[in-house]
């Protein structure tokens, strides 16, 4: 455990050193130094106005994550259980996944209008496809012996889904949710960057417009720290689930 912590520390130190080096090469206009950025991040963290934007972003993120995860699970389960629809939908979903979804943003704005609902829709749009794909594949590859046993024991269709298919598919589904988490956050942030008056994405874009490098980097740093921490937790749970099976 201590060794692990030391490794993480060394890695972070190396990243910071690299950052400092880049800073020395490129100068004040392009980057702010690690020290300056940390100070700016601290300043943001104690400012009341910053937390208003954080709340805005995270409530959008929460709704989007809820829609993406719930919708993706339901869709993936349905497509996984019904073979023909799964086979029909898979390439469509894969193309949807690889689309530069930002090109669809004007459409979303025209449909949902400016504001919260557009952000939520855009975030959910980013997150829903990976969950669906992972869930569908997991359901498809459930060990047939389990299903056969269930049939022999005369388990009803509904009970089959909840007691056999879902638990067996859980590790894969969780991996999908992990990807969904990152992409939904990115979707919400991009949504805010392009058309919003509130939220962290807006703060970044605003600072870019004002050429306030320090703030841009401080917000990015805070977001990165949040994303890495949340993902480490999810990754640990993910590994544990995969090992259990």
């Amino acid at each position: 455990m201590i060794r692990r912590a030391l490794e993480v520390f060394l890695f972070l130190a190396a990243l910071t050193a690299l950052w400092q080096l880049l800073y020395l090469v490129s100068g004040d206009v392009a980057l702010s130094s690690p020290r300056d950025t940390a100070i700016a991040a601290m300043e943001l963290l104690i400012a009341e106005s910053f937390w208003r934007h954080v709340r805005e972003t995270f409530s959008a993120f929460g709704y989007a994550l809820f829609i993406a995860a719930g919708g993706g699970l339901a869709l993936g389960l349905g497509l996984g259980l019904h073979r023909l629809s799964g086979a029909v939908a898979e390439p469509i979903l894969v193309s949807l996944y690889s689309l530069p979804k930002i090109t669809l943003y004007p459409l979303i704005l025209l449909v949902f209008g400016l504001g919260m609902s557009a952000k939520v829709a855009f975030g959910a749009l980013h997150g829903i496809v990976p969950v669906t794909l992972f869930c569908m594949n997991a359901v498809r590859t459930v060990n047939p012996a389990y299903l056969k046993t269930g049939r022999i024991m005369r388990v009803s269709r509904g009970a089959m889904v909840f007691t056999i298919v879902l638990p067996a598919a859980l590790p894969e589904v969780f991996s999908g949710l992990r990807v969904c988490f990152s992409l939904t956050l990115l979707g919400v942030l991009i949504g805010e960057m392009f058309a919003s008056q509130r939220g962290l994405g807006f703060l970044i874009m605003n600072a870019v417009g004002l050429h306030d490098v320090r703030t841009v980097m401080a917000i990015t740093l805070l977001l990165a720290a949040f994303a890495v921490c949340a993902n480490s937790v999810l990754l640990m749970a993910d590994l544990r689930l995969h090992r259990r099976v």
Binding site: F181, M193, I219, A230, N231
Partner: peptide
């Protein structure tokens, strides 16, 4: 690496 895609890389564009 796993959390990389949640970071808005575009913020670095001015840099």
């Amino acid at each position: 690496l796993a959390s990389y895609y949640a970071i808005p890389v575009f913020a670095l564009y001015p840099a």
